[in-house]
Simulated scan of single mutants.
Amino acid sequence: MVKVNELAAQRHAHKASMQKRVLAGVFALLLITLLIIVVAVSFKGITENFALELLRLILPAALASGGTIVGALFITRGRDEA
């Protein structure tokens, strides 16, 4: 028989795994975006000022989404243990 605590641990491990995958995806999208911006500036596709403005728009959103995912991981862990 599987104990209730083991099921709760498995459920949390699954949620944590999904959240880690989403966090990795957010990080990968951020890196790809930064790479595209750097390549566009280096080939004179966009100006440096425009690239800086793009980064000022993208970076806070990416950091906030990553922080939300990490925060949700800790919140659900506390809820699972209670």
Rank of each mutant, 00 (worst) to 15 (best):
A62K: 07
L30H: 07
F43I: 07
L29Y: 12
L59K: 03
T33Y: 09
L63K: 09
I36W: 11
D80S: 01
G66H: 03
L55S: 02
S42I: 05
K15Q: 09
G25V: 01
V4W: 02
L34C: 10
L23T: 04
S42E: 15
E81V: 06
K15T: 04
D80R: 00
K15Y: 10
L23K: 09
V26Y: 01
E48R: 14
F50V: 11
A16V: 04
S65G: 11
L30Q: 05
N49L: 12
L23S: 09
A8D: 03
K3G: 15
I75S: 07
A13V: 01
A61W: 08
Q10P: 00
F50Q: 15
A61Q: 15
K20A: 15
V2H: 03
A8T: 07
T47Y: 08
A8N: 07
L34Y: 05
L34P: 02
L73G: 12
S42L: 13
I32L: 04
F43S: 06
R79A: 14
L73I: 15
V38G: 04
V41L: 01
L57R: 14
E81T: 09
T68Q: 08
L57V: 14
L29E: 09
D80G: 01
R21Q: 09
A64M: 13
A61V: 15
L63R: 09
M1A: 12
K3I: 09
L23R: 10
V2P: 07
E6P: 03
L35N: 11
V4C: 04
G45Y: 02
F50W: 12
R56V: 05
G71T: 04
A51Q: 13
E81I: 08
G45V: 00
L55C: 00
A51K: 15
L52A: 13
L31E: 06
L23C: 04
R21M: 08
L59A: 05
P60L: 01
N49Q: 12
R56I: 04
L31P: 02
G67V: 04
V26C: 03
Q19E: 13
I36T: 14
L57H: 10
A28Q: 07
L34D: 06
A13T: 03
M18G: 04
F43R: 08
H14I: 08
G67K: 05
G45H: 03
A9C: 02
L31N: 12
I32K: 03
M18A: 12
A24S: 07
A72Q: 15
T68C: 11
R79H: 11
A64W: 06
I46H: 00
A16P: 01
L63V: 11
A8C: 06
L57Y: 09
L55T: 02
L31T: 09
A72I: 06
V2C: 02
T47S: 15
